[in-house]
């Protein structure tokens, strides 16, 4: 991959970060990961308590990219057709007319996805996985780039339908924003004193450019030992004693893609093990199913990944790696 191509990705990242930073105070790491997901053609699940800026982040991303944006507020009575769209009978024409649903946008915000019923969730996740929807026997391809940013509140359980592990795997990243720091919260109050800056936010790129960069990111060079490290790291999740179900090969692929995107955003045309380590928790944690005993003991998927990052050999100079 030529250095000029990497420069374009880095420049894109810099512009996007600057634009999103107008509405999001702090959270640079989360923004960078979100961009990595966008460049890797992945979908993101934002999981955090209400009011920390999940929806705002998704909106800012959509506005900055300049594509078609739609928002789905998930509720228990939301039907699959409310997402995919439905064929309505047109009495004048005497035929069915397809009315596209919100999923036909390019950046889709699925707010509180765990409030939708499993069937509705699966229709959205199917669109995410396949990049197409099928309604009444007709298949409609979704426009590229297509990214779903879903949010969920981990605290509330009443009236929610937790996403099954198999469907969580379809999300490229799971991000947790966390509360802002003291200074950041002060800044938030200052900025929002008069009007919300999201209203002034404009696009800094277009969807065609994003699609082009997505292709460029796949060209970032991955040295054999780094690829090997990714595989060993993901495989190690399957043999961890606290884990019931480890990450799938889809997880390996996602981790590698995420590392490529991060390297390109960092203006590098090659991936280092640091990129892999940086993205590992966000990419892998939600793909693990912990044993019930471990959960009861307070073990979290994040702590398991952190432990593995301290155990799995990177395969750097002077150390023989074990497979």
């Amino acid at each position: 991959m030529a250095q000029t191509s990497v420069n374009r990705v880095a420049e894109f990242g810099w512009k996007m970060k600057e634009n999103i930073a107008q509405v999001m105070v702090g959270k640079e790491a989360a923004i960078e990961m979100l961009l990595a997901a966008l460049l890797s053609d992945g979908h993101v699940l934002l999981e955090d308590v209400p009011g920390v800026g999940k929806t705002m982040l998704a909106r800012a991303l959509a506005t900055s990219v300049g594509g078609r944006f739609s928002r789905i507020q998930c509720t228990p009575d939301l039907l699959p057709s409310d997402i995919t769209g439905l064929s309505v009978f047109d009495q004048k024409q005497g035929d069915f007319v397809f009315r596209p649903g919100p999923v036909m946008a390019q950046i889709v915000l699925a707010d509180e996805i765990n409030r939708a019923t499993p069937r509705t969730q699966s229709s959205l996740l199917e669109a995410m996985g396949e990049g197409q929807v099928t309604v009444d026997g007709h298949t409609y391809r979704l426009k590229r780039p297509f990214m779903v940013v879903a949010t969920q509140n981990p605290v509330e359980f009443e009236g929610t339908f937790p996403l099954p592990e198999a469907q969580l795997d379809r999300f490229f990243l799971l991000l947790k924003l966390g509360y802002p720091t003291l200074d950041e919260e002060n800044q938030v109050l200052l900025r929002l004193q008069e009007r919300h800056p999201i209203t002034d936010l404009g696009p800094v790129t277009d969807v065609n450019h994003v699609a082009e960069l997505q292709h460029l990111v796949t060209q970032v060079y991955v040295e054999a030992s780094v690829r090997d490290y990714v595989v060993r790291l993901v495989r190690s999740t399957r043999t961890q004693s606290q884990v019931q179900l480890g990450a799938s090969p889809r997880g390996s692929l996602a981790l590698l893609r995420a590392a490529q995107a991060l390297a390109a955003l960092g203006n590098r045309d090659y991936v280092t093990p640091d990129d892999v380590k940086h993205m590992a928790t966000a990419v892998l944690a939600h793909r693990l199913t912990l044993k019930a005993d471990s959960v009861l003991r307070g073990v979290t998927a994040e702590s398991v990944i952190a432990e593995l990052l301290h155990q799995v050999e990177v395969g750097a100079e002077g150390h023989q790696t074990r497979s």
Binding site: K277, Q311, A316, G318, H319
Partner: peptide, 28 residues
Amino acid sequence: VRAMFRRIAKVSARKGLAFHPAQTASEF
């Protein structure tokens, strides 16, 4: 350069700053 890295790792190990296998070069 790679040999030099190995040498640095070896010398620093003697001083108690061992290069751990799970460390990346930049962490070291």
